[in-house]
Nucleic acid binder design. Structure first.
Length: 674
DNA sequence: CCATTTCTACTTTTT
DNA sequence: GTAGAAATGG
């Protein structure tokens, strides 16, 4: 992806875009928001009221006013939402989406750091790499252990994951660790004093290794904006218009970034407090409330007419919100626009399997009898594991589906291994990347990897040698466990070759060199489905072909975390969508099935135990408001997989709280007993 | 005695 | 698939 767009490129100004009849395309509320004069704009938009439509038309309107695309920044939460939005803008105006700065906070932060990371206030080396969640945690584990050897041995102490979460939340909310612990993690009160030290050693390790974690992408971006006037000027002058989607999900640091980006206050923030579902990442819909204070003369727009769903679906959605306890939310009622239709169904089945079979039967009938496009059907769920049985049944019965799954393409073991090799070679100080690949050698685990790494590092420093060359010296070899000695030469040789390729060849070739080297042999031995995995790595090399520079490829892979690979499903093949509700946010489908609507699954067990189901309720609200025409809320009576086997489930409290007149209950009879 | 492997139980949500 | 506990091996 190209980063720098010169302003001169951004001609033509003004017309040159296909004409749009804004008046006819929008209702009054939308039209007023879209054509509002530049300045702070806060748009409160209910679900399905055309939030994305308003944003995309706003972009189109700005373009029609002669604003060059290069002056527009579009911020979103998920990759999916950003892709969707850029796509819609493109459809509307024909403008090349790459001319905007559009993307998630994290990806734009990355872009900013690539441009200005070397600024005095950060002094980042340009070849920094980004840790994913797992690597961040294991780096934290290692650094904390180095500081306090016994910390994790004590079972009453938080494990690396939770520890990381505490520190991450404090960074995202810009609050002290002490405050974060007492507010959100009282169970860690007694170890709170140790946390600042842990945070410090972790931060130092990252700096030493020239790596960043996700939170750094926000934190350092903000630091650039507030501490380097040159950078602040650049962003302030260049991006004359900011548009922020799902504003209710911004956390403190994100909201500060927005404010720092726009000294000119030309921000359009769009949000809906009832859809705030990221508070576990520090999202606080109070940001909406205080927006007018931070941006004087904010024009407030409300968009409340719902064009998406039938009145019956909306009634149920309103019913979900009615059950909210009083206070801490704005009253909200979606006004229906569409004609009456059938009520949503609540479907009880015996177990997961029957639930899946119901889906298959109903979907078949929808597609074959009613001519519904499979692309317009979505199966939504609270957590990935709920969809397991559905996935299997779909595969078995040949229902085409596309899953944005827990096992995402870039998360697959072998993909991450290969990326690890690339990352390590690109930035040899990235010890996390080293660990990942070194542990693949027999008899090498965390400890040996660490020893080898430091032996090589010392040697390289001492002899002024390249790190990879240092690996083959006797000094280092002596640290390699016996079992790994055989493979060691070919391991090193392959790294050498890959490093050479990275210097001379484009990313795609580098990927191929790495695949054909030691790692290819390793795969052959380690997995029975070797061929499948090679195919996937070939897909990775195809993906790499899109990039000219290794750093862009690597950054995209970490940031694009969840993207299903292009090869999973043919782009225009028709397939049912299986996704978590979080990922479905902002999207809409003709037919929506929500599966696993049982207490313990949705709301999740953890939320019930923590006695805080409000966020889950908002999530449920998000789920039902995705549906345009038909909505099915399904739950199995018996949990087969999760929890202690054969547990009896009760319908979700969100269903029980609803007035039964809002839905039709359906009980599935077994078609054929087995 | 420590590091690694093996076995078993369980699985939030995203960047 | 993966994290954590028990078993094994250097």
């Amino acid at each position: 992806m190209d980063f720098i767009l010169d302003r001169d490129d951004d001609a033509p100004t003004g017309p040159g875009y296909p004409p749009i009849d804004f008046r006819a395309a929008l209702n009054d509320e939308q039209f007023n928001a879209v054509t509002a004069p530049p300045g702070p704009l806060l748009v409160l938009a209910g679900a399905g009221s055309g939030k994305t439509r308003t944003l995309t038309y706003r972009v189109a309107w700005l373009l029609h006013q002669g604003v060059p695309p290069g002056e527009i920044m579009l911020l979103t939460f998920t990759n999916k939402a950003s892709k969707e939005m850029l796509h819609r803008v493109h459809d509307l105006t024909g403008e090349d989406a790459r001319r905007f700065w559009g993307g998630t906070f994290h990806s734009l932060g990355n872009r900013a750091l690539r441009m200005f990371g070397e600024s005095e206030c950060l002094k980042l080396k340009p070849n920094f790499t980004i840790l994913d969640a797992g690597e961040s945690e294991s780096l934290m584990k290692r650094t904390v252990e180095a500081e306090d050897k016994l910390f994790f041995k004590d079972k009453t102490n938080p494990k690396p994951g939770p520890l990381f979460n505490v520190i991450s939340l404090s960074r995202n909310t810009q609050k002290s660790l002490a405050e974060t612990v007492s507010e959100h993690f009282p169970q860690y009160n007694d170890i709170a004093v140790a946390l600042p030290t842990f945070a410090k050693v972790y931060a130092e390790a990252k700096r030493e290794q020239n790596v960043l974690d996700y939170d750094d992408l926000l934190e350092l971006w903000l630091k650039l904006l507030t501490e380097d006037p040159k950078v602040a000027d650049y962003f302030g002058n260049r991006f004359r218009h900011l548009l922020v989607d799902e504003y209710q999900d911004t956390n403190t640091i994100q909201s500060q970034i927005i404010d720092a980006l726009a000294p000119h206050h030309r921000i359009m923030a769009v949000g809906d407090d009832a859809q705030c579902i990221y508070s576990w990442r520090g999202a606080d819909f109070a940001n909406i409330m205080t927006f007018p204070e931070r941006h004087p003369n904010t024009a407030l727009h409300r968009i409340e007419t719902n064009y998406r769903s039938t009145p019956q679906i909306l009634n149920l959605a309103n019913g979900v919100l009615e059950a909210q306890p009083a206070g801490r939310h704005f009253d909200k009622e979606l006004r229906a626009h569409r004609a009456n239709s059938m009520k949503p169904y609540v479907v009880q089945t015996m177990d997961d399997r029957e639930q899946a079979e119901f889906l298959v039967k109903r979907i078949r009938s929808l597609v074959e009898d009613d001519g519904v496009s499979p692309n317009e059907i979505a199966v939504l769920y609270r957590s990935h594991f709920v969809a397991l049985e559905t996935q299997l049944t779909f595969s078995r019965t040949g229902v085409p589906y596309q899953i944005t799954s827990g096992v995402k393409f870039f998360e697959r073991q072998h993909v991450r291994d290969l990326v690890g090799i690339l990352r390590f070679i690109y930035n040899p100080t990235d010890e996390s990347a080293w660990h990942r690949i070194a542990c693949l050698l027999p008899k090498v685990g965390e400890k040996s990897a660490h020893k080898i790494y430091h032996a090589a590092l010392d040697h390289a420093r001492l002899m002024q040698q390249d790190f990879i060359d240092a690996l083959t010296t006797d000094d280092v070899k002596s640290k390699v466990p016996k079992g790994a000695k055989d493979e060691w030469p070919s391991f090193c040789a392959s790294l050498r070759q890959t490093a050479d390729a990275m210097r001379e060849e484009p990313p795609q070739v580098t990927v191929e060199v790495a695949m054909d080297g030691w790692y290819g042999d390793y795969l052959k031995g380690a997995y029975a489905d070797y061929m499948d995995r090679i195919d996937e790595l070939t897909a990775l090399s195809g993906f790499a072909a899109r990039f000219d520079a290794m750093q862009d490829l690597l950054a995209q892979i970490v940031l694009l975390n969840g993207e299903t690979s292009d090869r999973a499903v043919e782009p225009n093949q028709e397939a049912i969508k299986l996704t978590t509700i979080h990922q479905a946010k902002g999207l809409e489908y003709d037919i929506v099935f929500v599966i696993g609507c049982a207490d313990g699954l949705f709301p999740g067990r953890r939320a019930i135990e923590a006695n805080d189901v409000e966020e889950e309720r908002r999530l449920f609200y998000v789920a039902v408001t995705r549906a345009k025409n038909e909505l099915y809320l399904c739950y199995p009576k018996i949990a087969t997989k999760a929890g202690p086997g054969g547990m009896l489930l009760t319908p979700s409290r969100f269903l029980q709280e609803l007035d039964p007149s809002l839905y039709d209950a359906l009980r599935i009879k077994r078609a054929h007993g087995w």
